[in-house]
Write a protein that binds this DNA or RNA. Structure first.
Length: 590
RNA sequence: GGGGGUGUAGUUCAGUUUGGUUAGAACGCCGGCCUGUCACGCCGGAGGUCGCGAGUUCGAGUCUCGUCGCUCCCGCCA
C-alpha cells in the first residue's frame, strides 16, 4: 500500500478516483452500521467511510479503530449524498469509500485531545510535545516558521549574501550575558563557551573579504527566561562590507517586506518610521516603543521646577524629571483602579503616582492646590487637557519615570483597547548611547556591544564624557518588541583599543581576550556593519502568539528545562572524571 | 535573588470563604444500541496519593508551617 494523496487536497473533481490516504484517526463516528473516520495528516482532514453493505470485512475491522491509530486506506473518492456535505471542511463535499484498511500502528489514548480547541496546561503539552505538535494550530505555527526562514534565505541568496557557518564551540568572552560553558576533555580544566551570537566570526568574514554574510544561527545565553526569551534562540544574522546605516536598514526593510508578503501575503510599506533613541525615550519612555497608539509622555519638568509641590520641584532640582500621560476620557477611573495603576508603576520602582481628573469646572486632584494658575495653564496646554481626561504623573530619576510611565502607557493601551491588533507597526530606533553605567560593578558598559562604532562627531568625548557618546547602533522594533538590532562596527585598531579602555579594560586584558580581533583589524579590515533579528520573536508576531514557546518546536520551561527529555540531568561519575570535573555539594538550609 | 498567579478524575474546572455523610460536572475513556454522521445520538460503567511533607483537630481538599512543579513580571538578558 502506497500513499497517493495527502488529506485535504481531494475535491469534487477527484470523484471516481481510486486513492490511498495515510494518517491518524482524528475522530470515529460509529453508527452501528456505517462508520465515519476523520483521517488527519499535516495538510488537514478527509472523511473516510466504512459501509457494511459495500464491504463487510473491512467494516468489521474498522470497529477496532481508536483515536490516533495510524492507518492507511484505499478507496474511491465519492461525492457525498445530497445535503450531507460539510461546509466547514474544504474536503466536506467528498468522502473516500474504503475498500481496504491497513492498521499501520495502534496508539494509547493520548493524555489530551489532538484538537485546537482543547484547553490543556502547558506543562502537559510540553511533556507530550510530540502529541501537542500534532495539533493543527501549533503545526501551522511551526510550518509558518519554516516559510519565514525559507523566505529569508530566498531573499538573501538573491541579494548576494553567502550562508556561512560559524563554530558553536568557541571562546568565553568577558562582556555580555552569562555564557553556557562546555568542558574540554582534551584540555582538562579548560572550557569552551557556546556563542551568544556569531558576532566576531561574522566580522572576521568581512575582514576575509566575503562581503555579504548571513546565517540563521542558534545563539545561547544563560540568563533567566521570559515569554519572549529562551536560553537558546535563533537569529537571522547578517553582516555587510563597505556599508553605512542606510544600507543595512534598507536591506532589512526589503527583507521584511519580502518576508511578510511571502508568509502572510501582507504588504508592509518601507521605509519604516525612524526615531532617535532620545526621541523614543522622550515620547514613549522605552527604547522599543509600541507606536500603534498615542498616549505619549510629556515632560513637565520645566513647568513644575519652581512649583509649591515639593515632591515635583525637589525631584527636578535633584536632576530628576516629571512626566505625565493624558489618558483621554478616563475620568471615571475609580479609586481602586487608580490604586491598581499605582501598584503597576511600583513594579518599576516608582514610589507613587499623582493624578488629576479634569472636570468642566476645574481639577479634581490631591495635588491641584499646590500649583499656580500659570503652572496649571502651562500643564493644561502641554497635555492638551480637556474635560473628562485623567492625567497620570511620574516624578523620579529619568530612568524610573521613563520605564514606569513607558510600561504604564503600554498597559493602558491594551486596557483601553487603543491597539489595532491587526497592525504591524515597525519603527527604527537609532543613535543609541554608546555606554551606560553599571552601578553594581561601578564601570561603563557597552549598551550594544564593544565592537560598535561611535558616531564620528562624538569620538573626542570617548574619554572625557563617555555617557554622552552616541553609537552607530540601530534597533528594529515591531509592535513594541525588539525584533533585532545591529550597528556599524569599529574597523580601526586604535579606535577599538580606545573603546576597550573606556570599558575599564587594561591593555593586557584586551590583548589577551581580543588580540585576535585587533590583529585582524590591523590586517586590512573594510568598513562593515550588520544586524541580527530574533527569528523566534518575529515568528511569534507573525503567528500572533504571545509566547515564543508556541513557535519553537521543543521549547524550554521557565526553569530552562525540557519536560520531554528531562534535560538538564545529572551525569555519571565516569563522565565527570573524564572531564576532570568535581561537583561541589550545594548546601541546603535546614 | 525578589514579587504575583496557579496546582482537585486522563483533561478542563467547581468545591476551600464558614473544617463534618460516600469529593462533583463536562469532555475524554470502556461496554451496549444505532446505516449519513462530522464536537453524531441514546443507555450503562470504570476512573481520585485533592502537587508533596509535617502540624492543629474527634475529624483537613478546606486551617497553619514547610517544600516542589508550572507560569507572568522585576532584577538579569554586551
Amino acid at each position: 500500500m502506497r500513499r497517493t494523496h495527502h488529506c485535504y487536497i481531494l475535491g469534487a473533481e477527484d470523484t471516481g478516483k481510486e486513492v490511498t490516504l495515510m494518517g491518524w484517526v482524528q475522530r470515529r463516528r460509529d453508527h452501528g452500521g456505517v462508520i465515519f473516520i476523520d483521517l488527519r495528516d499535516r495538510e488537514g482532514i478527509t472523511q473516510v467511510v466504512f459501509n457494511p453493505e459495500r464491504n463487510p470485512e473491512v467494516h468489521a475491522k474498522a470497529h477496532g479503530l481508536r483515536g490516533e491509530f495510524v492507518i492507511g486506506v484505499r478507496g474511491t473518492v465519492e461525492l457525498r449524498p445530497e445535503g450531507m456535505s460539510n461546509p466547514n471542511l474544504k474536503t466536506g463535499g467528498i468522502e473516500v469509500m474504503v475498500s481496504e484498511l491497513k492498521i499501520l500502528n495502534k496508539a494509547e489514548t493520548p493524555p489530551f485531545m489532538i484538537e485546537d480547541r482543547v484547553d490543556v496546561s502547558e506543562n502537559l503539552r510540553l511533556k507530550y510535545r510530540h502529541l501537542d505538535l500534532r495539533r493543527p494550530n501549533i503545526q501551522k505555527n511551526i510550518i509558518l516558521r519554516h516559510k519565514a526562514s525559507a523566505a529569508v534565505r530566498e531573499f538573501l541568496n538573491r541579494e548576494g549574501f553567502l550562508d556561512l557557518e560559524t563554530p558553536f564551540l568557541t571562546r568565553s568572552t568577558p562582556e555580555g550575558a552569562r555564557d553556557y560553558l562546555v568542558p574540554s576533555r582534551v584540555n582538562p580544566g579548560n572550557f569552551y563557551a557556546l556563542p551568544q551570537s556569531p558576532q566576531l566570526f561574522k566580522q572576521l568574514f568581512m575582514i576575509s573579504g566575503f562581503d555579504k554574510y548571513y546565517q540563521i544561527a542558534r545563539c545561547f545565553r544563560d540568563e533567566d527566561l521570559r515569554a519572549d526569551r529562551q536560553p537558546e534562540f535563533t537569529q537571522i544574522d547578517m553582516e555587510m562590507s563597505f556599508v553605512g546605516e542606510e544600507d543595512i536598514m534598507g536591506i532589512s526593510e526589503k527583507m521584511m517586506q519580502y518576508l511578510f508578503k511571502s508568509v502572510l501575503d501582507t504588504d508592509i510599506a518601507p521605509p519604516f518610521q525612524r526615531l532617535t533613541y532620545d526621541e523614543a525615550i522622550d515620547r514613549y519612555g522605552l527604547d522599543k516603543p509600541d507606536i500603534r497608539f498615542g498616549l505619549e509622555l510629556k515632560d513637565l519638568s520645566d513647568i513644575v521646577e519652581n512649583s509649591d509641590f515639593k515632591v515635583f520641584s525637589s525631584v527636578v532640582k535633584k536632576g530628576g524629571i516629571v512626566k505625565a500621560i493624558n489618558a483621554k476620557g478616563c475620568i471615571d477611573f475609580s479609586r481602586k483602579e487608580l490604586d491598581d495603576l499605582t501598584d503597576f508603576v511600583a513594579i518599576y520602582r516608582a514610589r507613587g503616582m499623582a493624578w488629576i481628573k479634569v472636570k468642566e469646572d476645574g481639577w479634581q486632584s490631591p495635588i491641584a492646590k499646590f500649583f499656580s494658575d500659570g503652572e496649571k495653564q502651562a500643564m493644561a496646554e502641554r497635555l492638551n487637557m480637556e474635560a473628562g481626561d485623567l492625567i497620570l504623573f511620574g516624578a523620579d530619576t529619568p530612568k524610573v519615570v521613563n520605564e514606569s510611565l513607558g510600561n504604564l502607557r503600554n498597559h493602558l493601551g491594551k486596557r483601553l483597547g487603543l491597539i489595532d491588533e491587526s497592525a504591524f507597526a515597525f519603527t527604527w530606533v537609532t543613535h543609541f548611547p554608546m555606554f551606560d553605567y553599571d552601578e553594581t560593578e561601578k564601570r561603563y558598559q557597552a549598551l550594544h556591544h564593544p565592537f560598535t562604532s561611535p558616531l564620528e562627531e562624538d569620538f573626542e568625548r570617548l574619554e572625557s564624557e563617555p555617557l554622552a557618546v552616541r553609537s552607530r547602533a540601530y534597533d528594529l522594533v515591531l509592535n513594541g518588541f525588539e525584533l533585532g538590532g545591529g550597528s556599524i562596527r569599529v574597523h580601526r585598531t586604535d579606535l577599538q583599543r580606545k573603546i576597550f579602555k573606556s570599558l575599564g579594560m587594561e591593555a593586557e586584558e584586551y590583548e589577551e581576550k581580543f588580540g585576535f580581533l585587533l590583529s585582524a583589524l590591523d590586517s586590512g579590515a573594510p568598513p562593515h556593519g550588520g544586524i541580527a533579528f530574533g527569528l523566534d520573536r518575529l515568528v511569534m508576531l507573525l503567528c500572533r502568539e504571545s509566547s515564543i514557546r508556541d513557535v519553537i518546536p521543543f521549547p524550554k520551561t521557565q526553569k530552562a528545562a525540557c519536560l520531554l527529555t528531562n534535560a538538564p540531568s545529572e551525569v555519571s561519575k565516569a563522565q565527570l572524571i573524564e572531564l576532570a570535573l568535581k561537583l561541589r555539594k550545594i548546601k541546603t538550609e535546614d
